[in-house]
């Protein structure tokens, strides 16, 4: 199928496979199409159908709430072309060449599932190919048993990897997480599209790092810390990591965070904030290198960072209300918009 996208400054054409989401077909064709979550929740990849027929793969997608469907608007991440299609995007779209960094489809096998807390699971996907990605990026993942794709950030970082680490939280009513948590899934095949996302860290970022994460939002932050430690970023710059969960029982990756901190004891600070309960003596004595605080993570970060917002590059991740609160905190503290990075999931 041929898809033609008319944008602010001209048109672009690419091929799409049957039932392939128009966004994915365009991205792997090297186009800079607008998107954020790529999985139907945010609404950023809005386009307007000019001609042809499309199939909506998720008619109830929450990202459709502001769409004017009577004007032909649709989400490119949830619609596939049923023949040749012409659609319009209101942004500037550019064509990226070469295609080496463009996201692609790949397949892999689920391995090493393990529980990190009562409702958070870690797992690996062993890919059939190696994949290059930036620290902080995510993949859209689907398994044959569950309809649709979900976005998960890589936890690990390596320049060319065939093993990707993910963490997944059990969500009430979450079809994929329910499936994952209700039986042994090691050995199951999965299909992935990516890498996606722009909230990335690169060693060229000559700034102090400020990371604020809630819950499983810590995943992408772990990848960023992994890369920053590998490149000894904290020899030259400061790092402040704030990780929020509800109670001490909900905390995970504390061993890994303590290890990052121990590598740069003077320049890297890690604070874990509990919103519902104070830290226990046990957790304090077990992790002497980690600081513990009580409160919402953005409030804890706001108090602690007062007077230290200059020259930071901020990375935010977690539930959208928490990310919004952190954005507000940073903007009102005078941090420039180009120094705040996040990808919005829900």
């Amino acid at each position: 199928m041929k898809v033609k996208i008319t944008s602010r400054a001209g048109e672009h054409q690419f091929d799409a496979e049957p039932e392939e989401r128009i966004l994915y077909a365009g991205l792997r064709g090297g186009l800079s199409l607008p998107y954020e979550c790529a999985t139907g929740t945010c609404g950023t990849c809005k386009a307007r159908l000019i001609s042809g027929e499309i199939e909506d793969l998720w008619p109830d997608a929450p990202g459709k709430k502001n769409l004017k469907s009577d004007q032909g608007q649709f989400l490119m991440c949830q619609c596939a072309a049923k023949g040749d299609v012409v659609a319009e995007v209101s942004q500037f779209v550019t064509s990226l060449r070469p295609l080496s960094g463009a996201p692609q489809w790949c397949e892999g096998t689920i391995r090493n599932t393990r529980m990190l807390t009562a409702d958070v699971m870690a797992l690996q996907l062993e890919l059939d190919v190696t994949l290059g990605f930036e620290a902080g990026q995510f993949m859209a993942v689907e398994v044959p048993e569950v309809k649709g794709l979900r976005g998960y950030s890589m936890v690990n970082f390596s320049t060319d990897s065939s093993v990707l680490d993910f963490v997944i939280k059990k969500l009430p009513g979450g079809a994929l997480s329910n499936w994952l948590f209700s039986g042994s899934r090691d050995g199951v095949r999965a299909r992935l599209f990516g890498p996606l996302g722009v909230a990335t860290f690169h060693p060229d970022v000559a700034k102090n790092l400020l990371c604020i994460a809630g819950g499983t939002g810590i995943a992408g932050i772990m990848s960023i810390l992994d890369r920053a430690c590998q490149t000894r970023h904290f020899d030259r710059f400061e790092g402040d990591v704030f990780f929020g969960v509800r109670t001490p029982e909900d905390a995970f990756y504390l061993d890994e965070l303590a290890a990052f901190q121990a590598g740069f004891p003077r320049s890297l600070r890690v604070t874990v904030a509990f919103s519902d309960q104070p830290a226990t003596d046990e957790i304090r004595s077990r992790y002497p290198g980690i600081r513990f605080a009580e409160g919402f993570v953005h409030e804890v970060a706001g108090r602690d960072m007062q007077g230290r917002f200059e020259n930071v590059m901020a990375y935010l991740a977690g539930p959208p209300p928490a990310v919004d609160s952190s954005i507000r905190l940073l903007i009102m503290a005078g941090v420039g918009a180009d120094s705040i990075k996040y990808d919005k999931f829900s």
Binding site: A9, G10, F92, T94
Partner: peptide
């Protein structure tokens, strides 16, 4: 420049 970059047709 913005239009030139964006107009590279594919």
């Amino acid at each position: 420049t913005k239009y030139m970059i964006a107009a590279g047709t594919s």
